[in-house]
Structures are given as C-alpha cells and as structure tokens.
Design a binder for these strands. Structure first.
Length: 420
RNA sequence: GGUGGGGUUCCCGAGUGGUCAAAGGGAACAGACUGUAAAUCUGUCGGCGUAGCCUUCGGAGGUUCGAAUCCUCCCCCCACCA
C-alpha cells in the first residue's frame, strides 16, 4: 500500500471537521480509522453514514438525549448523512446498559405512539430533509430463526457477561433474562443493516457500539467507528438523566417547566449543563467556569442564564426571558404568576360544588391540584394552602365565591377562581 | 429434576395470630430558613367531607371471633447440587 498524499484543501477541511466533531467527545475509537474514513468522505464527496439509535421507551426526548442529537446535527451541518434508528424491536427487549434490573416490557402500541412523538421532537434539533429514519423492525421482523442463530454465533456468553451491568446483577442475585443478552447483538445488527460508518452513543453504550464493529466485520462490512459522549446527570444531581427516574428535563416541556427544573439542579451541575446541553462558545464556557469558581458570586445568576439559554433552544426566541421574568415574580418575589388556570362557576358546578359554599378539599382535588382529598387535607393542615394570601389551616374550610380569588397550593400550584 | 432460601406499601427493608395502614431508611411532598440549589430543623407520606369504616403485604381458596403472620394449591425469583 502506498501512502496517499493529501491535498492542502482536503487537509484543511479535515482539520476543520475534526475540530468541530471532537468537541465534548469522550472517546473516538479507533481515532486513526475515523480520520481515514473522514478523509475519504471529503475526497470522494461521499458523506459518512452516521448512526444513532433510540428506543422509544418513553414519550419524551430530554436534555440527556440532546447531547447525542446535537452532535448528530454537527455531522449534518458538515454534510454527512444522519441515520436514526427507531428501536421498535429493541425497545421490546429493553437496553440493559447501566440497568440494575430488567426493564418493564412495553406493548407494541405504546412503543409506536412514543416513536411518533420522538420523531417530532428530534426535528426540533435535526434537519428532517437530511435525515434517514429506519425502524429496526424493518429487518428484525423478517429474520427467521436460522438467521437469528447465525447472528448469535458471533458472540460469546463470556463476552456479554463481562459487562458491569450484567456481572453486578449476576453477583447480587438480580435476575437477568435471556432476551436481554440479545440486546447488544440487535443494536450491532442495526449497524449491519444500514451500513453505518460511525455510531454515536453515551459512554455507557461503549460495549454495544463496539459489538457493532464485531458484527459488521462478521458480515463482511467495514467496521464502524464509535464516538462516545458524556452522560448528563439529572436534576436530582445524583443519577443519569432518565425518564424512568423522573429526574429529566424534556425538550417538549413548556418554558416555565424547563426554566424551573433547570433552577432546581444542584449548583455544581451548572457548568456540566452549559458544556453538554448548550452550544455556548468555548470562550463563554471559560468565563462561566471562572464565575462559578468565585465564591463571592452567587451562582444563581449563572443558573438563570443557563435556564434562559435552554428555554430559548427549544422555544421561540424570547421565551427564555419571559420564563425568567415569570420565575423571578413567582419564586423570588413570591408574586402571582401572569397566567394561571381559571375556574368559574360553571366548572364548579361541573365539579359538583356549590359556588355559595365551596368545599376547599374537593375543589383542590377536582381541579387537579391534589391527587386525593386526603392529600388536600394534609396539605391544608400542613399550612401549604392559601386563598388570596391568607393561609387556610382548617381542612373543613368552605367559602362563598363572591370575588375573584387566587388559590395557592404549595409553591407552584395556582388556580384563579372567577365569580359569575 | 433435587435441596434450601425468598416474594411486604414508590424503592430498600423490619414484621410469624390481635396493640398493623404495617418499624427503620431512602425518595417525594409541605412548612421554617434562604441567594436558585444544597444543608439543617419540623410535619406528611393507601382511600373516604375526620368518622369510623373500606382496600392493601405474589395469586386463589381455607382455618379462626380475628391473618402480612397458620394451612392447601398455584405463580415467580435466588443459591447450591445434577
């Protein structure tokens, strides 16, 4: 083999792309191989096929997902082909990566419903016209048992069990179902089916991504390169962001929700969120790091900026500022929000309540502010409920709706009551 | 297939016939404090217009005045042996 000479133009473009694509990446394996692929792509004007798979196990894309999706967008902007795999079949297995227990099985209908909202949310970030989407059911549905066995011969049980999540479960006596062992093989086969050049994933995906290389080679293809990205910690500050842990910020959530959730993250996560979930410049990142390390400066302002930035990324321009103003009103200055759900006499009657003697406990539950009457009573007795800023502590409280009245439950639940 | 150990409220886990809506911890929620968050302290943490009732301890039956606790059958998990 002769060493190919690289034209200066190619070299320049290669460097440019590498610089952009390397930002925020944990590992790029094997690096040399990736450079070769990228160079070839540039020279032959043949875009790389960049794959990422998503299992529609929950209906929302959250900030943790966006790390990968935003990296995909960078590839897209550089002219490469994005291939999204919607894992309708893999979702039925449930990815064991990083899991300490078998995941609950979803019905196919639920999966397909989730898949639909997923796609809508993806294209808040990606350019739809330049994206190829496949459901992995397209190929798995057609596989017969011989083909499945054939796929299964490419991997050994020992290799699968050397993974942390499996070995920990095995040692601590937590069950592992046989089908879970198939997950990495399925994901790997997706790479065969769509002939991926590169696959992205979070660091915990490394095993699955590498399995893709093994399986592609076994099927006579050039193995993909893998690119791993950091895992975003959720709003609880402890575990990775995930829908099932309830510590996530969904990109489809209303501005106020996104803003509030961002404000609730621990202070020491502010930098990570800026780095991983936003597109602020490297210079700005440096400044943020400085500001945060200065103990004389209240990190709240930096957090506000973060929250505003994130809201603006997924909502129309200016939404972030509005959300910030609203947050300041309601939480810092404890004023009323601009917008609150309203309830008038008609709704009261529909709730089975008498506007002349509104039973507060029922109102709270019927209006959806509390989940049960008991919960409503407990909240009242705990001093968490007020009418027009007057704390109510009697759980049998009844009142006549004679004027516009604001009901406040806890810090963030409001209801405006309108008289006739 | 055999032997042994298990399945308890959102999670972990105590509970072996009444005093059990079930200890303790975590999570969550509310209150105080505050600079958003954290920390700390306090309270709540099955349901019902608060009154005793109703539903809950893998499932179905049964014993008993009374069952998470005892019996029978079934389902599931783990370990070891084969």
């Amino acid at each position: 083999m002769t060493e190919k000479t690289v034209s200066p133009d190619t070299q320049k473009e290669l460097d440019r792309q590498l610089r952009i694509l390397s930002r925020g990446v944990v590992e790029l394996l094997p690096r040399e191989e990736f450079i070769t692929k990228l160079q070839r792509a540039i020279e032959e004007r043949r875009p790389l096929r960049v794959k990422q798979g998503f299992d529609p196990t929950a209906p929302d894309i959250h900030l943790g997902h966006t790390i990968g999706v935003r990296k995909l967008r960078q590839f897209q902007e550089l002219g490469h082909k994005i291939v999204l795999i919607v894992g309708d079949y893999t979702a039925m297995v449930g990815d064991p990566s990083g899991q300490s227990a078998t995941r609950p099985k979803l019905s196919y209908d639920e999966i397909m419903k989730n898949a639909e909202t997923y796609q809508k949310q993806f294209f808040k970030i990606l350019d739809k016209s330049k994206t190829e989407i496949h459901f992995n059911g397209e190929w798995f549905r057609k596989m017969d048992f011989v083909e499945i066995m054939n796929l299964a011969t490419r991997f050994t049980v020992a290799r699968l069990l050397e993974r942390d999540d499996f070995s920990i479960r095995l040692k601590s006596g937590v069950p592992i179902s046989l089908h879970e062992l198939f997950y990495p093989l399925m994901q790997a086969y997706d790479s065969v089916a769509i002939k991926a050049d590169v696959e992205l994933g979070a660091t915990e995906q490394t095993f699955n991504l590498l399995a893709g290389r093994t399986i592609q080679e076994a099927y006579g293809l050039e193995p993909q390169c893998i690119l791993t990205l950091p895992i975003l910690i959720g709003v609880d500050g402890k575990q990775r962001m995930s829908k099932s842990l309830g510590n996530y910020i969904g990109i489809d959530e209303p501005p106020g929700e996104i803003f509030g959730k961002v404000m609730s993250i621990p202070d020491d996560l502010i930098y990570d969120y800026f780095e991983l979930a936003t597109d602020v410049s490297l210079e700005r990142l440096q400044q943020i790091k400085q500001v945060l390390s200065d103990s004389n400066i209240n990190p709240m302002d930096t957090k506000r900026e973060l929250a505003e930035t994130l809201v603006d990324m997924y909502h129309p321009a200016g939404s972030g500022r509005l959300a910030r103003e609203e947050f300041d009103r309601v939480f810092s200055r404890k004023l009323l929000p601009n917008e609150m759900p309203k309830v008038g006499p008609n709704e009261l009657v529909a709730f089975g309540l008498d506007p002349k003697a509104v039973y507060l406990v029922h109102l709270m539950t019927k209006a959806g502010l509390t989940r049960s009457n008991s919960e409503a009573r407990k909240l009242i007795e705990a001093g968490g409920v007020s009418l027009d800023d007057e704390k109510i502590t009697d759980s049998n409280y009844e009142f006549e709706l004679a004027k516009e009245t604001v009901l406040k439950v806890g810090k963030r639940r409001f209801l405006k009551l309108m008289p006739a």
